[in-house]
Design a protein around this nucleic acid. Structure first.
Lengths: 220, 220
DNA sequence: CGTTTATGGATACTGCTACTATCCATCACA
DNA sequence: TGTGATGGATAGTAGCAGTATCCATAAACG
């Protein structure tokens, strides 16, 4: 398969494919002559994965690259690969100074983690985001939302249960490579999936309660 | 309060504040002289909200502006304001052609919506994302994840229940304006909150199961 | 066999976003 | 009275994600 067909099959412009090749998101095709290469099924899969991460999950190209490097490495543990996936979808945020709102939030998060018996690495990228989000909610006078943290965690544990079930319930002939890819896709695209579902559920509730022309009490 | 103090209180550089003023994200301060304005508590709140949406929730500035316009409008229904919030966090995606994978996904989503009795506007921004995500999961040979859609929806309904409870259980003296702000913040920052929590839960599970140096079967 | 089209590889350019920087006339404050 | 901050305007910047162009060569077609 030459580049034009790869482009057609995946719906990605040729210059974009060349760009991904330059950035080493896609491995080079097998050269048959100095200026002729052939691409295979692996390239199609890889390209589709890239587009899903970039388009759907809004992962920056540089992060996609890191994730793919993880997938291609055969010395990296699945846990470390997941770590890369997490960093890919968690914006790097260097906290300059900690306010007291942030310290309170950090304490709340720590309590949550301990009460649930979670084992979290102190450098986990999501940790900072969570703490800052809770601090922001409090600063914005939305304590009531932050107060539901524990119930949120309940619901969230459902997801991880589901995902573990999804991965472990696959047929036996699944190779570790495929498992790793599954887990990473589940981690990243799962987020998009959950987010969309949540918005739909909200839209439905909102339509039923608040679609009147003002912010009145809803009908019944 | 002059601009320097606003900057200090919120931790936002003065040029950035000027930029937000230019873009009408922040209302102008009250002019006391041709080149002297004073900012109040409302500006502090507004600026903090902007930073939370931009930094934490990664909402593009142009979208933040739309959300704020919704909040400031007193003729817009809460439902429409929520619609703006949804559009703010859902990337605009113009589908060119529909593949058969997408049509299958669309049918699956339609079935889900009907079985749950959700009332969804056909133009809901999350709809396209959901359909394309499911289609992508299938194309990437991850049908098993898409198969859990219904269980995901179960868990997701928990969140919306929580959020409705959080909003409706507020003290009586809450004004419609405050409710609207609460709902919008809950919609947008709630997503960040859930996402971080989910990543933490995943990290915990991942550490327990897969932190070995290879993708072996986990201990026990 | 000659011509048109496609390809790999390199380099340069573009559009967008979210700021930053600079300038200036004015104003507050010591 | 002078030093620094302010509002307003205009211009510049960095990073990201591609696009565009060029070239020498190779494939496909008549």
């Amino acid at each position: 398969m030459r580049i034009a067909e790869l482009s057609r099959v995946c719906g990605v412009p040729v210059p974009t494919i060349k760009y991904y090749l330059r950035e080493n998101l896609l491995p080079p095709g097998k050269l048959t002559s100095p200026n002729q290469a052939s691409y295979g099924e692996a390239h199609v899969r890889r390209l589709r994965l890239i587009r899903a991460l970039v388009d759907l999950a809004q992962v920056p190209v540089a992060r996609v690259k890191e994730v793919l490097e993880g997938l291609d490495s055969d010395t990296m543990s699945l846990h470390d690969q997941i770590g890369r996936a997490h960093r890919a979808i968690t914006p790097q945020r260097q906290l300059t100074s900690t306010t007291d709102a942030q310290e309170a939030a950090a304490a709340q998060v720590q309590a949550l983690i301990e009460s649930r018996g979670w084992s979290i690495h102190p450098d986990a990228p999501a940790l900072t985001t969570l703490v800052e989000t809770i601090a922001a909610l409090r600063t914005l006078n939305q304590d009531h939302l932050a107060g539901f943290l524990d119930s949120y965690a309940d619901a969230v544990e459902k997801f991880t249960e589901l995902e573990v079930a999804a991965v472990t319930s696959r047929p036996d002939h699944t190779t570790p490579d495929q498992i790793a890819e599954s887990v990473i896709i589940g981690t990243i695209l799962g987020e998009t999936l959950i987010s969309s579902l949540r918005l739909l559920a909200q839209e439905s509730i909102s339509a039923k309660r608040w679609s009147a022309a003002s912010t009145d009490t809803p009908p019944h």
